[in-house]
Amino acid sequence: VTLFVALYDYEARTEDDLSAHKGEKFQILNSSEGDWWEARSLTTGETGYIPSNYVAPV
C-alpha cells in the first residue's frame, strides 16, 4: 500500500477530482497518469484524482 499525506488543501474542480484537506492520508491507486494521481481517501473512502504535487509520502 502506497500512502501519501496532503500537504495543502485542494478543492475538487471536476467530478473526477477528489478534494483533500491538509494532513489527510491517501492510498495511491494509480500514479501513471502524470501530474494527477488516482487516490482513495483513508478518511472518507472516496476515490478520485488529486494533484501529485499536493501530497508527499508518509
Rank of each mutant, 00 (worst) to 15 (best):
T2A: 10
T2R: 12
T2Y: 11
L3I: 15
L3W: 10
F4I: 05
F4Y: 15
F4G: 04
V5F: 10
V5E: 09
Y8T: 06
Y8F: 11
Y8Q: 08
D9A: 07
A12F: 03
A12V: 04
A12S: 10
R13C: 14
R13D: 06
R13Q: 14
R13V: 12
R13N: 08
R13E: 10
T14Q: 10
T14C: 15
T14D: 12
T14W: 12
T14R: 14
T14N: 14
E15H: 11
E15A: 13
E15C: 13
D16Q: 14
D16K: 15
D17T: 14
D17K: 14
D17C: 15
D17Q: 15
D17G: 15
S19M: 06
A20W: 06
H21K: 15
H21P: 02
K22A: 11
E24W: 04
E24N: 02
E24Q: 05
E24D: 10
E24V: 01
K25W: 14
K25D: 01
K25S: 06
Q27A: 10
I28A: 01
I28T: 01
I28N: 00
I28Q: 01
L29P: 03
L29Q: 04
L29S: 05
L29E: 05
N30F: 07
N30E: 07
S31Y: 12
S32Y: 09
S32D: 10
S32C: 13
E33Y: 11
E33R: 14
E33W: 12
E33M: 14
G34P: 14
G34Y: 10
G34N: 12
D35N: 08
D35P: 09
D35T: 09
D35S: 08
D35M: 10
W36C: 12
W37M: 06
E38D: 04
E38P: 04
A39H: 02
A39N: 01
R40P: 04
R40C: 10
R40D: 04
S41G: 02
S41T: 01
S41I: 03
L42D: 05
L42F: 06
T43K: 09
T43W: 13
T43D: 12
T43G: 06
T43V: 11
T44R: 03
T44P: 00
T44V: 01
G45F: 07
G45H: 05
G45K: 03
E46W: 07
E46S: 10
T47G: 02
T47F: 06
T47Q: 09
G48F: 05
G48E: 01
G48A: 03
G48W: 04
G48H: 02
Y49M: 14
Y49D: 01
Y49R: 14
I50D: 02
I50R: 00
I50A: 01
P51H: 10
P51S: 05
S52N: 05
S52Q: 07
S52K: 14
N53D: 10
N53W: 15
N53L: 10
V55D: 01
V55H: 02
V55Y: 03
A56Q: 09
P57H: 06
P57S: 06
V58N: 04
V58T: 07
V58Q: 06
V58A: 09
